[in-house]
């Protein structure tokens, strides 16, 4: 029961935080008065955060041991190439994830 309450609170918190970021431009920028600092952060914080999150996701890979990180490098390269070719986010993600799952689950070692 404690777990049910936790997940309900969790969903509400994440839902409200998401709504806040989506409503922010309509509240902050709807009139004039765009503060240059806000505009600067609005433009350059997201690219920095996206790279931080990417690094955060792969930080627990054992990069320097054995074949550590090879699967990740191959799959991420496929994501980059697919995205530069087709520029369809969902296609790039699904291709990369499919390949990564195949690599991790040893599909290719059968051949």
């Amino acid at each position: 029961m404690g777990n049910t309450l936790y997940i309900i609170l969790f969903i509400l918190t994440m839902g409200l935080a998401t709504l806040a970021t989506r409503a922010a431009p309509f509240i902050l920028f709807s009139k004039q008065g765009e503060h240059p600092l806000l505009v600067f952060l609005g433009r350059y914080l997201p690219p920095a955060i996206m790279l931080l999150l990417l690094i955060y996701c792969v930080k627990d890979v054992n990069w320097f041991v054995d074949k550590g990180g090879v699967n990740e490098i191959i799959a991420l390269s496929v994501v980059v190439v697919a995205h530069l070719l087709f520029r369809n986010a969902l296609v790039s993600i699904l291709l990369g994830t499919g390949l990564y799952m195949a690599l991790k689950q040893g599909v290719f070692s059968l051949f």
């Binding site: 790279l51 996701c57 986010a89 993600i93 994830t97």
Partner: peptide, 15 residues
């Protein structure tokens, strides 16, 4: 196994 790669793949695309 490996399905959680959707998240780093998504961030790669966003970068």
């Amino acid at each position: 196994t490996g399905l959680d790669f959707t998240l780093p793949a998504l961030f790669m695309v966003l970068v």
